[in-house]
Design a protein around this nucleic acid. Structure first.
Lengths: 194, 194
DNA sequence: CAAACTGTATACCGTTCGGTATAATGCAAG
DNA sequence: CTTGCATTATACCGAACGGTATACAGTTTG
């Protein structure tokens, strides 16, 4: 009765889904193995611990996200286009990998010592660093943003996270449309009256 | 050995501090009563359950926050001033009640079924409703925002939350200064280049 | 074919969880 | 001065927690 369609992958997916819905601390290992239809030793064979499982989930998903984000943010000469590309990374990510983005959102604004946040922290910091880098480079070429790089980073990520969060809450795919991005970009670049 | 400086209040404060640091699920009732230097029956006498304790914490703190927010947002004829006033409510709140704002931030972008989020959901929705109301009224008087009320609400809250979150992360009070608010407002109203 | 290794199952570990039965204390009102 | 109530302490509950010892099946390798 071995190998009934890759237990490891199924554990990863079920755990992510449960973490995203009930939180890391709110999800028990029994929850996970029951949902994934494996036994506990199977899970511990692959991941060693509950936290090991969390680490692998974060590593997999954040690695993919960071790569896309870096690619989207490598055109410092065009802030407008880059806004679109970054927004698309987040919005596509949210649509295609709803569970991960739900989980990620719950970790995003944290600052405490909860286990899941501590594991995710380095990835969150990397995300900020990628956007900050972009604005730093954009300033070198444009100049009129000098001194605002940090605040731009905070507000850009804040606005996009808020929009993704609204999508997850409303579950309305219109929230992820190009039209939404255009409106958000217009507002970000030129203010709410524009 | 009765009444050694109000056990109930001390339980509330210690629980909030622990929730903000380790999350609701990550905090045990033993944690709480040990920190507050009471026994479990004392806690259960006052609050009935762990969730009852959470409810009272949320009710107390969100009631105060919502009242301040409503007051700050009752000048629909002046968006610029209102931005300042709303930002001050959040920023002062974060400085004066760090634990609650830390906790609140962790709940803010959630969408799942975790216990703490479900308890807090109605308050979060009320917060959005207050800001949304403001923009709806502002549109009636100004008009040039028509159709953007929802997106303005999302981005305003998103930007301010991101700033508060940056303060909690950096622990730098300069983040909460009037100067920061002016920059954020300028950006919100007139774009990043302005 | 035998040894070794990967993966899975049964059954169980000690600990901690949220919560409570019972009783003693201090204090206010009759 | 005692009855009644609000508050606190001791001691404990069953259930669920994260994690594991042991064994065995299936495959790979010598």
């Amino acid at each position: 009765m071995t190998e009934q369609t890759n237990n490891k992958e199924r554990i990863l997916q079920c755990a992510l889904k449960l973490f995203s819905k009930k939180g890391y601390d709110g999800t028990s290992t029994m929850d996970i193995v029951n949902t994934a239809q494996v036994t506990k030793p199977t899970m511990y064979h692959y991941f060693g611990s509950k936290e090991g499982l969390l680490s692998e989930i974060l590593e997999q998903n954040y690695t993919a996200l960071s790569a896309k984000l870096k690619e989207a943010a490598n055109l410092p000469q065009d802030i407008s286009l880059t806004f679109y590309r970054i927004a698309r990374v987040y919005f596509d990510g949210a649509r295609e990998n709803l569970d991960f983005f739900r989980f990620r959102m719950g970790l995003m604004l944290r600052t405490g010592e909860d286990a899941a946040y501590l594991c995710a922290r380095k990835y969150i910091e990397e995300e900020y660093a990628i956007i900050k880098d972009f604005f730093d480079n954009a300033t070198k070429q444009a100049g009129n943003l000098a001194g605002k790089e940090s605040l731009c980073t905070i507000t850009l990520i804040g606005v996009l996270n808020a929009a993704v969060s609204a999508y997850l809450y409303l579950e309305d795919e219109a929230m992820l449309s190009d039209e939404t991005i255009y409106k958000l970009r217009q507002q970000f670049l030129h203010g709410i009256y524009s």
